[in-house]
Computed example of a mutant assay.
Amino acid sequence: MSAPLITEDHKDRVLWRLNRPERRNAIDKELVDALHAACSEVEAEPRIVLVTGEGGTFAAGADIAQLRERRRDAALQGINSTIFDRIHRLPMPTIGLVDGYALGGGAELAYACDFRIGTPATKIGNPETGLGILAAAGASWRLLELVGEPLAKEILLAGRILGAEEAREVRLLNEIVEAEDLLAAGHRWADRIAAQAPLATRLTKTVMHAPHGAHPVIDDLAQAVLFETEEKHTRMTAFLEKRRKS
């Protein structure tokens, strides 16, 4: 039996491949467990994360066969919401490479990423109410922040599925590329992120995700940490020397 998640490690990034192509990468308990293990590695050694799906589909939702059998206690465990929140809070930015369907839990996984790159075949949305449930793994509140209340209600309450161009127009997708260029585009975005000071990037993400009541104290504390770093001094010195020579 093949692993539900394939990881490829690089110096400053890691690629996660959802590997259930025969089920269109439906998110089941085994895949959730594998994602938790992958998160533990990135939390211990912070790196940029790229997430993609095998077989021309990002993730066509949760595994309905498993979902049908879950009862109240399973819902209260927050199986999917816990892993997607953990991915959202990873120390370095995450990039979703969204080819084909990203529906239900697959869409919520994409929403949890910091950036999303799609292809012309991308279809993203939340049909949960059509199955008698709600999008309980982040979409009901995260989508409001991403696209605003009117469009979020169309997606969550009326089952609207967005195509690639529609998703880009509302910035749910940062970019659209051809499927064969998707991985290269993800690495290009990762290169841009990696060119920034890693700790500054990490703390900026932390500050951005902090609750409103934590500001401005958390901003000042994070800045105080960065002001003491050698990298801040080195980068600013290089900037000033370059400007002096120009």
Results as ranks from 00 to 15, higher is better:
G132H: 05
T122A: 04
A135R: 08
L134K: 12
E128Q: 08
E149L: 14
R142M: 10
G125F: 04
A137M: 04
E149Y: 05
L131M: 12
R142T: 11
I133W: 03
I133N: 04
A136R: 14
E145Q: 10
L144A: 04
N126K: 00
A135D: 13
S140C: 06
G132L: 06
V147T: 05
A136L: 09
L143P: 05
G130R: 14
A121N: 12
A121L: 11
A139F: 05
G138V: 10
P150C: 03
T129W: 06
G148W: 03
L146W: 01
I124E: 13
L134Q: 09
G148Y: 03
P150Y: 08
G125T: 06
A137P: 02
A135N: 12
L146Y: 01
T129V: 14
A121S: 15
R142H: 08
L146Q: 13
T129E: 08
A139C: 07
E145M: 02
A135Y: 06
I124P: 09
A135K: 05
G138Q: 09
R142P: 02
T122K: 03
P150R: 09
R142K: 10
E128G: 00
R142W: 03
T129F: 14
A136S: 14
A137I: 11
A137K: 11
S140D: 05
E149W: 00
L134V: 15
T129Y: 11
A135M: 08
I124Q: 11
G132K: 09
A139T: 10
G125L: 05
G132W: 02
I124Y: 10
W141E: 14
A139D: 10
A139E: 07
I124R: 10
W141H: 15
A139G: 07
P127W: 10
L143G: 02
S140Y: 05
R142A: 11
P127C: 05
K123Q: 15
L131H: 15
L134S: 14
G130K: 13
T122V: 10
L151Y: 04
I124C: 09
A139P: 09
T122N: 02
E145L: 05
L151Q: 05
E145T: 04
A136D: 15
L146F: 01
A139L: 06
G132F: 01
I133F: 10
P127M: 07
G132I: 01
A121D: 14
E128R: 08
E145I: 00
N126S: 12
A135F: 03
L146E: 08
